[in-house]
């Protein structure tokens, strides 16, 4: 049976996709449909949350100058 869904299409690389799947399972469910390796359909309201989470991930991976001297 054919169906029609609307939502927010996320285009990303496979690495980030794995991170999003991890978030979906462990933190908060937001994925509506896994389309393929680089595309996901998510809830409209999750955009800010994802941007925030990705920023957090980057921050944890960033070496901050001068922090090691403290």
């Amino acid at each position: 049976m054919a169906t029609l869904k609307t939502g927010l299409l996320v285009t990303c690389d496979p690495t980030i996709r794995m991170y999003l799947l991890h978030l979906d399972r462990n933190d908060r469910s937001f994925i509506q449909l896994e389309i393929d390796d680089t595309h996901l359909l998510i809830d409209d309201s999750s955009r800010e949350y994802l941007v925030h989470k990705i920023d957090e991930l980057h921050r944890s991976n960033t070496y901050i100058l001068g922090e090691s001297q403290k």
Binding site: M1, A2, T3, L4, K5, T6, G7, L8, L9, V10, T11, C12, D13, I16, L33, I35, L41, R47, L50, V51, I54, D55, H58
Partner: peptide, 21 residues
């Protein structure tokens, strides 16, 4: 570019279409 690894776009998905259609 690293920060913009996610691209968001409003989209409609047709699911379960028979192969010829």
């Amino acid at each position: 570019a690293e920060r913009n690894r996610l691209l968001f776009q409003r989209a409609a998905v047709f699911e379960g279409l028979p192969p010829p259609v």
